[in-house]
Design a protein around this nucleic acid. Structure first.
Lengths: 216, 216
DNA sequence: CCTACCGATCGGTAGG
DNA sequence: CCTACCGATCGGTAGG
């Protein structure tokens, strides 16, 4: 496949101002992203250990050794899946909270957080976060720290809502432990939720809210 | 190691009535159990795929090929871990419910179930159930069915309590979905609970109860 | 149960 | 990025 090299060597006429290097870089980062996407899907479907790097290469349209041109090791690829996933999830979370009316009640803030979390866990093509949740063990200690930092930021955003709900008595467990239990309940849905089944994410969200903080 | 063979060939004087075969069988089943225990511990610590059968053999004091004298494959050993674990968990569950005063309130029945589940998940030397929860993927379809049947029986025992709590309004989500969320919350504790930390299983149980069905 | 071993798979690399 | 390949590991078996 010499296509991308040819493009880089002969810049297309309409893109006069662009330096060559940038084209190359864009192409490289596209291929890299394709590898991460393919890896996420396979890691989720078969598990990290059970996924040969050769399969990831094939899914990205490459030969067996090529992933190691982009990533120094298989676990570096796993780390990329997790970090990309967390960055995306955090961005969506911020957007979901921004979209709320100013001074929305805590119950509605929690609803938005839960709903958005389901989206990221169970939505079409969302393999990144499930991989992060279930493949921790395959990271090195340093890699784990890196992901943990992002995860902590994501989960910390839930505490203001939980604290507020505790103050009003709607949340009856201590907020810190409640957060751990709640994430467990939500994260476990990837084990049983069937996107082809009758349950909608809205229904799931409402039921989770009822379970944790009761009806409105 | 000829010790066990020697014992079988020359029955000990005090055990006059016992036939040889039974001694041999008992010895075999002890060794088998030792393999299952070692496998459970390693599968939990490192994951199924990342655990070589050689390590399991060594942990049980055997040579590399010997586990295959007792189990036809590595995944048969995994199945044994899960089935033994579920059988034990179910037995403890029955005992916990029996120990309750007759006509105990539903909240107390749920408390007993949660407390017992924590014991099985987080207690010392309880590796079987965590392995069952996190290594599904490594079973064949038929093996999965076998474990699923036991798991269904275990989880079904929670429904009478959940239904009762729903009727009284203490549980505000639909019982069927609530059960899924609740097991998620509880099962996830294996990811974060530190037995050496300050939290006790009693405190955890109380907090879970408050979260799901509120204070007494 | 052990010894000795096979065949396959796999992560990763050199060299272009 | 590809080609060709290495070294190591691993599940499982034969034969006793």
């Amino acid at each position: 496949m010499l296509k991308s090299a040819a493009l880089a060597e002969t810049p297309p006429p309409m893109r006069r101002g662009r330096p060559r290097k940038s084209e190359q870089e864009r192409d490289e980062s596209l291929r890299r992203a394709e590898l991460v996407r393919a890896a996420a899907q396979l890691f989720r479907a078969k598990g990290f250990d059970a996924t040969p790097t050769r399969d990831i290469a094939a899914a990205a349209g490459m030969q067996s050794g090529s992933p190691f041109y982009y990533f120094e090791s298989k676990s570096a690829l796993l780390l990329a899946v997790m970090c990309d996933g967390m960055a995306q999830a955090k961005a969506r979370q911020d957007a979901a909270l921004q979209a709320l009316p100013a001074r929305a009640p805590a119950r509605e803030r929690l609803r938005a957080l839960i709903r958005q979390h389901f989206e990221v866990l169970l939505g079409a093509g969302s393999d990144f976060i499930p991989v992060m949740l279930y493949e921790w063990r395959s990271l090195t200690a340093e890699q784990r720290q890196q992901v943990a930092a992002q995860k902590d930021g994501y989960e910390a955003a839930w505490m203001p809502s939980l604290n507020a709900l505790h103050r009003t008595g709607q949340l009856q467990a201590r907020p810190a432990v409640a957060r751990l239990f709640i994430f467990g309940a939500l994260n476990w849905t990837v084990q049983w939720f069937d996107p082809a089944g009758p349950r909608t994410l809205d229904d799931l969200t409402e039921q989770a809210l009822c379970l944790f903080v009761g009806k409105a």
